[in-house]
Design a protein around this nucleic acid. Sequence first.
DNA 1: ATCGCACACGTTATAGCATAACGCAATTGA
DNA 2: TCAATTGCGTTATGCTATAACGTGTGCGAT
Lengths: 132, 132
Amino acid sequence: MSAPALTKNQALVFDVLEKADGPLSAYTILDKLRDHGFRAPLQVYRALEKLLEYGVVHRLESINSFVACAHPGENCHSHGIVAFAICESCGQVMEFHDHEVDHRLMDWTKAKKFKAEKTTIEIRGQCEACAA
Amino acid sequence: MSAPALTKNQALVFDVLEKADGPLSAYTILDKLRDHGFRAPLQVYRALEKLLEYGVVHRLESINSFVACAHPGENCHSHGIVAFAICESCGQVMEFHDHEVDHRLMDWTKAKKFKAEKTTIEIRGQCEACAA
DNA sequence: ATCGCACACGTTATAGCATAACGCAATTGA
DNA sequence: TCAATTGCGTTATGCTATAACGTGTGCGAT
């Protein structure tokens, strides 16, 4: 599941996400890529689908947006569950990992024999700067 | 923040969610209430907004759906962070609470001086019955 | 009592997010 | 060479959510 070479569209989308200073919606990405020939949402969604699969991009479910993984170069899938703190004022996102949280959730799923595929942890609120 | 008496629309929406055996989208709720005079999405969304505020309904961010709280009568807001396991085959949702997970996340937010408002934990996968 | 306010409600319109279905081109491996 | 796979482009559509307007009702303060 490590990332193969990106296709042109995938590279364009990834580049936009990496240069952005916060999460972007698919349609925002589309707008930023119109100059590069993008015309339709599917061009973005298809690229995102692969980038998510490769683990180099994360989807923020609670705000329907996407961010580049905070671990450039590494495969983020190997870090365990990813958690996000999303500032609702400035839009900044902090990505972190807590193995103890992972263990607790794994314990629960094991006990219930639930086969976890994808886990979402998102904390919305105010970052230090914005809460002042 | 305890729940006052529900209005007619709120009661109708809550009733639909309680009787459902899984999460429902706002539009599914709308369809189920057309016989009761519902015509527009806003009638559902406005009711949901209040029900979420009262803590008697939860929103599942990862599937854009809503479920009645698993603790009838109690104010779910007092149970700490709520976590969900969502079976992608049968649609069943299990709601649970883990104070250790809460503590770990709280520790992180404290350390980062992040003011958490709302935390989402959702595990998607296969329930025991469907994984067989 | 009546004025002002808060709140629930109804309606229309629109904005924002995501995918279905078709066809074409390039690549790869049997 | 043929078939399978993958990426791509386009059009159309469906699903999710909210903006903006107006109505009516209850209720407390003056």
